[in-house]
Design a protein around this nucleic acid. Structure first.
Lengths: 226, 226
DNA sequence: GAGCACACTTGAACGTGTTCAGGAAATTCT
DNA sequence: AGAATTTCCTGAACACGTTCAAGTGTGCTC
């Protein structure tokens, strides 16, 4: 578990930064977000409390780091499925299952993480136009899910699908956060049921009969995002 | 602006409680949630800091009170539309517009409020089965939206519709929270566009052709809620 | 290599939400 | 009415996230 992005920093500083991130993630996992204090994170990283704030302007910013690392691991975990499957439904299903697989150790307190996504100020907000590295990277993965598939779709659908799939994945996470079933069985079931439906919808969107409907919907989406 | 529910308390205590709630809501509106400190809330209410915690076990619990009062005012504001309109789409549209109307003074920091709804521990959580007075009361309003309408629907739809409409209203609020357009124009547009669509879907759900589809969907919903 | 600029680091201090041992006031009991 | 009990109230104290004035080190310039 190491830091992902670390621009223009002296080697020593980079190492310090990484130590803080590592300590934070370990403590997050061990104790949860709230119970992991900045004092202990800094202490475990072998630096002063104030120093942690030199690298991260707030405790919440450490969550961004969590997202980035989670994404890197999610990406790696998705490789196998994306290399194997060509059918859109299977690719989506595999990617989402990998997402939940990786989040498992954090379920107890993932709510504390992902509730921030609902805030307008958060760069993870589904509606804000401002981008965050974590969000963009995640959408990029769903672009690969889309592009690498054998599914045929119109250009207007192809353009919007990755972001829609990402939005859908956020919904899955929201559901998972609240899922008390053992092993998150219900969430996996939700994925298994809905992934093929999404693929079917995409396939159906090519029907000439639905041309105007699809246009209406895409217009609505663009409208709401504008 | 007065407190709503206040069970088995001595008159004096009830008054104290109400004073705290009033002070809290005023400060929330004036400064936002974070900037309104418990010390100042208590001070304005004319009680000690600690005393506020006798009535509310946390600052977050004051938000519940906010929900209740907002609901009472929303209910009152919806009366007119619900008395006038019989068509489901119009009833839903009017109710949702009233909801956003009433929230207007709080938009600046409503995100801080409603992000809690995404947490599993929150009683407002859309997925948890545990009920909160605020949530139940709100669903009850959407039951009135449903029952008082001229729309015909199957029993299985009628039973589930109020909660679905409530869930939809939460989605509208989520959108509104992120809506930067002047006067929340975009949110109102969303309401105007989607309300008739919902009504149409309900109407269409009676078609024999869609019987099995509707059953599939209701089964999925029940499944996910179980 | 002396001085300098700047990146990095420190820990005490601030204001916050929350707790708690204890005190005051009301209510009930005898 | 007086005692006992419960309800209500207090303010100091705690741990937390965060800030900041002041330090330390590192590399660069001349």
């Amino acid at each position: 578990m190491t830091s992902v992005a670390a621009p223009e920093l002296t080697p020593r500083a980079r190492q310090t930064r990484a130590a803080i991130v590592d300590a934070a993630l370990v403590l997050f996992r061990e104790r949860g977000y709230e119970a992991a204090t900045m004092r202990e994170i800094a202490s475990r990283a072998g630096v002063s409390t104030g120093n942690a704030y030199y690298y991260f302007s707030s405790k919440e910013e450490l969550i961004q780091e969590f997202y980035l690392i989670r994404h890197a691991e999610h990406l790696a975990a998705s490789r196998a499925v994306l290399a194997r499957e060509t059918e859109l439904g299977a690719r989506l299903r595999g990617t989402l299952r990998a997402l939940i697989d990786g989040l498992a150790p954090y379920q107890a307190f993932a709510g504390t993480f992902y509730k921030h996504a609902a805030e307008p100020s958060s760069p993870l907000s589904p509606f804000s136009k401002e981008s965050s590295p974590a969000r963009d990277a995640s959408i990029e993965l769903f672009r690969e899910v889309t592009e690498g598939s054998s599914a045929r779709m119109s250009e207007e659908v192809r353009q919007r699908l990755p972001e829609l799939l990402w939005l859908f994945s956020m919904g899955v996470i929201l559901y998972w956060v609240h899922d008390p079933s053992p092993g998150s069985a219900r969430t996996y079931h939700l994925i298994d049921v809905t992934a093929p439906v999404v693929a079917r919808l995409v396939a159906v969107s090519r029907l000439p009969m639905l041309r105007s409907t699809v246009r209406d919907i895409t217009r609505l989406i663009d409208d709401l995002r504008a």
